[in-house]
């Protein structure tokens, strides 16, 4: 049961993390009305994943590995793009919050509202089909003393609970810290998804270098340990990481972190003189 529990936890964590940050962000910026869009995206992603998973498991036709990989790879690239957009969107809002240009803040929020559904949809849907296929397989299994489905479901529930705990914590941070930490959190999540996509392409032979590992720490961090599952679920950290994976991760995370630090920690930069009157939002 523990092994199935850890798979459920790992598969659920990333989505829980992104959705938690999105919800916390909307609440902190006074946009509770946009929460409905988050739940809409969530319901669609979960519903479609479970239905597609059931159709492929019990129906007359399954999905070939090649098609599943093409779908997963495409969704991963889209997810990286959308989370990157979300990071930039949030950091812009943070700047406007600081300069108290409420009119421009509202403009930025309005522009982003429409994409909230899409971000949620992709964050949950990216691993949704694989998780659904895993769940249906667990449901089908003839439990031998243990109950695989119970383990899998408890794992997913734990991921949601961890997301909830993170949400409570995020509400207590002051706004500057909130933006800094959630921004950095999203950067490493997106970097992980990118590295994972690169690894998939290397496995398929589209990109070279599957055999050249930058490091192999699977002895110290076994992928089937609870900490291995946590690292994999949040950062997409793989104990056996190829050079190309590591380079892709660094090439994403370093510039994005630099961008965030520049935007969110401009402590000693002299503020340009701005007129006190508010601009009318065009």
């Amino acid at each position: 049961m523990l092994a199935n529990y850890l798979i459920g936890l790992r598969e659920g964590l990333e989505a829980a993390l992104v959705v938690t940050i999105l919800v916390a962000y909307l609440v902190r910026t006074g946009r509770r009305s946009a929460l409905r869009q988050v739940w809409t995206g969530l319901a669609i992603a979960v519903g479609v994943s479970l239905a597609a998973g059931a159709a492929l498991t019990f129906g007359p036709r399954g999905l070939s590995f090649q098609a599943q990989e093409a779908l997963g790879g495409t969704l991963s690239i889209l997810a990286v793009g959308l989370v990157t957009w979300m990071i930039i969107w949030m950091s812009r809002t943070a700047r406007f919050l600081k300069s108290e240009l409420q009119g421009r803040l509202d403009g930025a929020l309005a522009a982003g509202g429409a994409a909230v559904v899409l971000v949620t949809l992709l964050a949950v849907g990216r691993e949704g089909l694989e998780t659904a296929l895993f769940l249906w397989a667990a449901a089908q299994s003839t439990g031998s003393g243990t109950d695989p489905l119970l383990g899998a479901a408890l794992g997913l529930a734990t991921a949601v609970a961890l997301g909830w705990a993170l949400y409570r914590g995020a509400l207590k941070l002051n706004l500057a810290k909130f933006f800094a930490w959630t921004g950095l959190g999203l950067v490493v999540v997106a970097g992980g998804v990118l590295a994972y996509g690169v690894h998939d392409l290397q496995e398929a032979g589209v990109l070279p270098g599957i055999g050249s590992l930058a490091f192999d720490v699977s002895a110290a961090i076994p992928p089937d340990s609870w900490y291995g599952a946590l690292l994999r679920g949040t950062l997409n950290f793989t104990a056996e990481t190829t050079w190309l994976q590591a380079i892709a991760w660094l090439a994403y995370v370093l510039p994005m972190t630099w961008l965030l630090v520049r935007r969110l920690w401009p402590r000693q930069a002299p503020a340009p003189t701005r007129p006190q009157t508010e601009h009318v939002a065009a």
Partner: peptide, 8 residues
């Protein structure tokens, strides 16, 4: 993700 007891 083939957990113990599962057939995939």
């Amino acid at each position: 993700n083939i957990g113990p007891g599962l057939t995939r």
